[in-house]
Design a binder for these strands. Structure first.
Lengths: 234, 234
DNA sequence: CGATGAGTTGATCCGACTCAACCACGGTGG
DNA sequence: CCACCGTGGTTGAGTCGGATCAACTCATCG
């Protein structure tokens, strides 16, 4: 919690990496801290984009709603990731709702201070471009999957992506390290919780995954990755 | 084709807007021109991201392929839009294939020159963040539609988006101003050309759209936007 | 100890994909 | 000039993946 610790943390974030110690200290001084309890909302879709955040510890979920009640999960955010890119891009409002799925800790900056800082430090803007580009690509990939793949494969890819982003190696396999319900998976994979439940049950029988309520472990990731052929040959 | 014309063109692009005349002239001097005939490929998915472009006139299509033969259309690009953002974000390879759907004209810059320029002009990086953010949002919206809406509504939204991005007012309605086949619409909406054909035929009967081969006019955009209720009540 | 949320599993149904046959148009070449 | 073929488009019939509807169990919580 001291100055040096904060500097090390900031130096490890996707948006501030590569900055000089002086620049890091400058952004540190402009920051405020924000804590979120589990299930607490950071901001709602449509709120004016006034504050930019970086997630330090914890896990956040970004969701997006349509007028007609539809809801999807855009992505989960982990430590070091930026929150509220709309503040940087100059959009007026946040395009999604951000909620903590476990107790979290963030640094925050006002729109003026982060935009001013970004203007003076092109590396920050370049980092933002890189980070946004990566998210854009990931979304593109999901779009691709949703257009062309079966539900089963989409669920498989969803779990693999989560395992990659927030996986923790255990004796049983790769554990997805935050509470994740069937419904959550369904909203990521573009299906219903019923289908997710059936699919996970089948995989559990085959020893591919293990799951309890709101908790998934991927035991055999390679088996998930190789779900093209409808079934193994004789 | 003279210097002043080029400066005016550059000043109107999403990535270079707001720059001083001197900065614009600097980027103009570093640029080279590139012409693409209809159906000519600018670069392929997987090619090293070595050159950054801005589209001056014409229309490009960005597609993305999966290993297993799946293909989607990521988006169409119009005048003033940047092409090859991966060069900015430092990704090693282009994530998609870009092809001209009509004769086009671009400005191009080497990776070193555009990144150096961006490093010296934070506005450019900020513009890039804004542009990428907008594309990210658009993709998010498509993802949302694909997860929650019926094929018919997705086709409707696809046409509305195209009409918005590349529409030309005519006596008959909003004409989509570049060749667009059923297959193209299908790859944007995440469906098959058969379903698109059926849907457009039905809409044509209702006077909502008019279409010939590779050519679509949206006559009653509001009717497309209001396709929620399955059918009008008695 | 009801209540609420998460999960499972069966039965049913339908939207849209698949398969298939066909037409129209526009090059191209004999 | 016409025969040919490839591309784009239309439309019908059949099928099926997965959503929907429904009933029930099991935790967790105030």
């Amino acid at each position: 919690m001291n100055r040096q610790t904060d500097l090390n943390i900031l130096a490890g974030t996707e948006i501030f990496r590569g900055l000089t110690a002086e620049a890091l200290d400058e952004i540190r001084r402009a920051a405020f801290r924000r804590r979120l309890a589990k299930d607490e909302v950071l901001y709602h879709q449509g709120d004016p984009a006034a504050t930019f955040y970086v997630l330090i510890v914890g896990r956040l979920r970004v969701t997006q709603n349509t007028v007609d009640g539809g809801r999807i999960t855009v992505r989960y955010l982990g430590a070091g990731e930026m929150v509220g890119y709309a503040v940087l891009s100059g959009a007026g409002a946040h395009p999604g709702t951000v909620i903590a799925v476990e107790d979290s800790h963030l640094f925050g900056w006002s729109q003026e201070s982060i935009r001013q800082f970004t203007g003076r430090h092109p590396e920050v803007a370049m980092n933002a471009v890189a980070a946004l580009g990566a998210r854009y690509q990931e979304t593109q990939t999901r779009l691709q999957e949703l257009s062309t793949e079966s539900v089963e494969r989409r669920i498989a890819h969803t779990l693999l992506r989560l395992a990659h982003q927030a996986g923790r190696r255990t004796a049983m396999g790769i554990e997805i390290a935050f509470p994740l319900s069937r419904r959550d998976v369904a909203e990521l994979a573009g299906t219903t919780l019923h289908t997710v439940s059936r699919t996970l049950s089948a995989w559990e029988k085959d020893g591919i995954v293990m799951s309890e309520r709101r908790h998934v472990i991927v035991c055999r990731p390679h088996a998930l990755a190789a779900l093209d052929a409808p079934a193994g040959p004789l």
